[in-house]
Write a protein that binds this DNA or RNA. Structure first.
Length: 641
DNA sequence: TAAAATGCATGT
DNA sequence: CATGCATTTTAC
């Protein structure tokens, strides 16, 4: 007999089903292998959770229809993790397994995986020596112990080397490691650092852009124990590394780490559960720190891993705010580029010293938002009320709706009858154009969604970037200018401060240390907490403050919140069917787009698991009843307001 | 989508 | 109140 998880994401079918194993399939149907089974008439995919000798099922068991392959693609460790993730997110095991196990590729599976490489020597500890407990961390890992650390990385481009060193220490201690980063550029950096520390063949990189055959080939090499180290994006968190000793997550505040498919789990939660269940070490690192990581430190789950203030000061650039009413530089070119005097001076100093300058602009495009020149009201499309923008600087450029694409050449302000438009927001492309005029003869390069630069050479140049696309500069930037801070800080989002600071630190960390002339100018008022944190280079202070705010407001991570969304009747029905833990508060509903609405259910951290279980049970009741309108349940959603 | 369970009309 | 056929429900 075999206990099988069938590939059906209906909530009430989220349990194992027992099947008879025909004699002919006895050797092929292994624990963790893929099978096909007859389930309510049709043939469906399934995965063998375990082989058993008896079943609690009353009634006759159906036989397994066929074995897909004997490859045990679900390891015991990942099976436990997937169950825990499903429970945590009020989702189904089948949904998690779809994220955790890549599609099979028969030809690749028939080929052998390469022989494992010998474990490396201990890492060079000098890089981690800058951190208070850095040496202890490496020793603990080489000794096979499992420390958990919240790492505030020193500014500069060497953080991937630190990750390579903790991985090397883990390997030297006889265990494997999983490293997850938000995007391809970080993946390239950590991949390169691992290659230089471990040579080739000791690790694999896993990302969605590989293609099915190569992806499965690498994943199988991990499953079969040929490779003990994985670095990758989101889905790599589930990689079946044997004897897992360490999980690493870089920049956990990046929103791409939230899974967009059911059950909407966050990579941070997956890796924390995994470290806990597997008894592995955990390293959560970044230039900034999220309230979630602050909470882990506060709760004693993770220890802070920071450098002494003197080391931080020596590594950080000099950071200055322009103040609220920034005076624009007198230089006519700088005036047209809206450069505050301080920023213009910092850029000029750096360029004169032969160093590149990074300019971070929060919005891409040319003029992403226009406003009435007379009354300053935001200009909207007469047809669909979308924002009007300007695509290029051509003299005849007609304002265009950014939602429906309609041209709005004959725009008339509905509140004051004005006809003239002005730029409400200036995008990266126009900023680049204006900077070219402000600094004649200096090369202007742009890095953004269309073309992301990984690095720029040393030498004077202006590099205009949108957040998240900052190239590393050879030798570091002489100056980093952070423009239009208000556009980031005034967003109506609980995480606006945290997210702004994350983007600022990511750019500012690429500047040279102050002693080498590195300067950062932020176009914001120095009294704002996020600006204060940047000036003092103190991500921990800001995260602790952010956590205190969340405690006061009763939002995650101080509490647990479930978002329940769908058509109004379905949402109401689901909540009515949920046995809410004591003290659970319902907020809303608020209307969403296309007639759906959303309710938030808030409870204590302690009752979070119970709330997830209760919601899963309510989903099961609805799916068993074949309720037509699905309800989306998401725990601790990123977007709360 | 196959079997089992249930519903329902019809005939005695 | 059996019987046969249609529809709904279950899911091993």
């Amino acid at each position: 007999m075999a206990r099988v998880s069938v590939d059906a994401s209906l909530a009430h079918l989220d349990r194992p089903f027992d099947y008879l194993v025909p004699e002919s399939l006895d050797t092929a149907v292994t624990t963790g292998s893929r099978v096909r089974v007859r389930f309510s008439g049709r043939l469906v995919d399934g995965i063998v959770l375990e082989r058993v000798v008896s079943s609690a099922h009353v009634g006759t068991l159906a036989p397994i229809a066929r074995s897909v392959s004997p490859e045990p693609v679900l390891t015991a460790e990942v099976a436990r993790l997937a169950r825990a993730v499903a429970d945590r997110c009020a989702g189904t095991l089948a949904d998690v397994l779809r994220l955790a196990i890549p599609p099979r590729h028969a030809r690749v599976e028939a080929q052998p995986s390469p022989a494992p490489v010998a474990p490396p020597a201990r890492p060079d500890p000098s890089g981690w020596a800058s951190y208070d407990a850095g040496g202890l961390l490496l020793t603990a890992l080489t000794d096979g112990r499992s420390p958990r650390a919240a790492w505030a990385a020193l500014p500069g481009p060497t953080w991937p080397d630190r990750i390579a060193e903790v991985v090397q220490a883990t390997l030297a201690g006889g265990r494997g490691a999983v490293v997850v980063v938000p995007d391809r550029r970080d993946l390239d950096r950590v991949d390169a650092a691992l290659t230089s520390a471990l040579g080739s063949g000791a690790h694999v990189r896993l990302s969605a852009d590989l293609g099915p055959a190569e992806r499965y080939r690498r994943w199988l090499a991990v499953l079969r124990g040929s490779v003990r180290v994985v670095v990758g994006t989101r889905a790599a968190a589930f990689a079946p590394v044997a004897d897992l000793g360490l999980v690493v997550l870089w920049d956990d505040g990046d929103d791409v780490l939230a899974e967009p498919r059911a059950p909407y789990c966050h990579t941070r939660d997956v890796l924390l559960l995994r470290a806990e269940l597997a008894g592995a070490a955990a390293l959560l690192g970044g230039f900034s720190r999220t309230a979630e990581v602050a909470q882990l430190v506060d709760a004693g789950w993770a220890r802070p891993l920071v450098a002494p203030r003197s080391v931080v000061r020596a590594a950080a650039p000099r950071v200055r705010p322009t103040g609220d009413d920034a005076d624009l530089a007198r230089d006519p070119g700088a005036r047209s580029a809206r450069l505050p005097t301080l920023a213009w001076r910092a850029a000029k100093d750096a360029l004169d010293a032969g160093a590149p300058v990074l300019i971070q602009v929060p919005r891409r495009g040319y003029v992403p938002a226009l406003a009435c020149a007379r009354c300053r009201e935001t200009a909207r499309c007469p047809a669909c009320a979308g924002p009007l923008g300007q695509g290029s600087g051509a003299p005849a450029a007609v304002p265009t709706c950014r939602w429906c694409g309609r041209l709005a050449g004959d725009w008339l302000c509905p509140s004051c009858d004005g006809r003239a438009l002005r730029a409400a927001v200036v995008g990266a492309r126009r900023t680049a154009e204006e900077l070219g005029r402000a600094f004649p003869g200096i090369a202007v390069r742009t890095s953004g969604r269309d073309e992301v630069l990984a690095s720029v050479p040393a030498g004077p140049a202006l590099v205009v970037t949108t957040p998240g696309a900052e190239p590393v500069a050879e030798g570091g930037y002489g100056a980093v200018v952070l423009l239009d801070a208000w556009a980031l800080l005034t967003r109506a989002d609980l995480r606006a401060g945290e997210e702004t600071l994350r983007r600022w630190f990511a750019a500012a960390a690429l500047a040279r240390p102050a002693a080498s002339g590195g300067q950062v100018v932020v176009a914001a008022d120095g009294s704002l907490p996020a600006v204060q944190a940047l000036l003092r280079w103190d991500p921990v202070w800001h995260a602790d403050r952010e956590l205190a705010d969340r405690v006061a407001l009763g939002f995650p991570p101080a509490t647990r919140v479930a978002s329940v969304s769908g058509v109004p009747a379905a949402v109401a029905e689901l909540i009515a069917a949920t046995e809410l833990p004591d003290g659970t508060q319902a907020l809303g509903p608020v209307a969403l787009a296309d007639g759906r609405e959303r309710c938030l259910l808030r409870t204590t951290r302690r009752s979070g698991a119970a709330l997830a279980v209760a919601l899963a049970a309510a989903q099961a009741v609805r799916s068993a009843r074949k309720a037509p309108d699905p309800v989306r349940v998401e725990l601790d959603p990123l977007v709360l307001l």
